[in-house]
Design a protein around this nucleic acid. Structure first.
Length: 113
DNA sequence: AGCCTGACTCAAA
DNA sequence: CTTTGAGCCAGGC
């Protein structure tokens, strides 16, 4: 008899994060904390960032560039060129950054239904 | 199991 | 506005 009515997802936290991020529509963004909250772990924002950090360079399967921090900024400033790449990819989708390098989360934030 | 790291976040000074 | 400190979670050793 079924011991798992709902069944514990065989997927790891990382896989679930990737699945969710894959659903972010073009031109929209989510914050690390937002992703974590949606996955059921309100305080796992760091884990989300870590999940993206292990993605191989040039990954297009998961739109990692659509994930930014809670202030609406790119969180890779100390990480070199990756930050520029992320910004360019977003601008290419229509996301606008102000002089301080921030985006308006109220405009671009996406929330899954 | 313990300990360290980190693309995070929030609150306080 | 900037700087600290603490809390949080998953992965790797």
């Amino acid at each position: 008899m079924p011991q798992r009515p709902t069944g514990p997802a065989p997927e790891t936290f990382y896989d679930r994060a990737y699945d969710l991020i894959r659903q972010i529509p073009r031109g929209k963004v989510m914050t690390y904390g937002h992703v974590a909250l949606t996955l059921g772990a309100p305080s796992a924002a760091r884990a989300v960032g870590y999940a993206l950090s292990v993605l191989p360079p040039g990954t297009a399967d998961v739109p990692w560039w659509r994930v930014i921090n809670a202030r609406g900024e790119i969180s890779l400033k100390n990480r070199g060129a990756a930050a520029d790449l992320q910004r360019q990819l977003l601008e290419r989708e229509g996301v606008v950054f102000d002089v301080a390098g921030k985006t308006d989360l109220w405009t671009y934030r996406w929330w899954p239904e």
